[in-house]
C-alpha cells in the first residue's frame, strides 16, 4: 500500500536495510536451476561453492547442519540466469524450462 507523505521518513530515506527482500524476483525466471547432490562438491565435502559465490541474486543456499551438507535454491529470488549452472565444475546443475 502506498503511504501518505507524513507516514514515511523524510527525503526518501529507507530505514529498513535490505527490505528489498520483500520484493520477490523469482517471477522473472524462464529457466530454473535444478541441482543434483550426487556429483556436487559442496555435498561431498563442503568445498567448491562457486555457484553460491557467483550467484548475483543470493539465491543459492549452502547449508551445513550437524556436519552434513545440504543444498537449496531460493526460488523466491532466483532469476534463472544460469550462471550457477555455467560455472559449476562438476555439471551438478541443469537449467530446465519453468
Amino acid at each position: 500500500m502506498s503511504k501518505r507523505f507524513d507516514e514515511i521518513p523524510m527525503a526518501g530515506i529507507i530505514i529498513e536495510p535490505g527490505n528489498a527482500m520483500e520484493y520477490k524476483t523469482g517471477g522473472w525466471r524462464a529457466m530454473r536451476p535444478v541441482h543434483t547432490d550426487e556429483t556436487c562438491l559442496w555435498i561431498k565435502n563442503g568445498t567448491c561453492g562457486l555457484c553460491w559465490i557467483y550467484c548475483p541474486d543470493n539465491a543459492v543456499r549452502l547449508i551445513e547442519e550437524n556436519g552434513k551438507y545440504r543444498y537449496e535454491y531460493d526460488y523466491d529470488y532466483c532469476k534463472g540466469c544460469g550462471i550457477c549452472a555455467n560455472q559449476c565444475p562438476t555439471g551438478s546443475i541443469k537449467m530446465e524450462s519453468e
Partner: peptide
C-alpha cells in the same frame, strides 16, 4: 544503516516534495 537518495518514481516522488 539507512539508504539515502534512492530512486523514487511516480508512486512516491510527489510525497517527498510534499514533505
Amino acid at each position: 544503516p539507512v539508504t539515502m537518495g534512492p530512486l523514487a518514481l511516480t508512486d512516491y516522488y510527489f510525497e517527498f516534495k510534499e514533505q
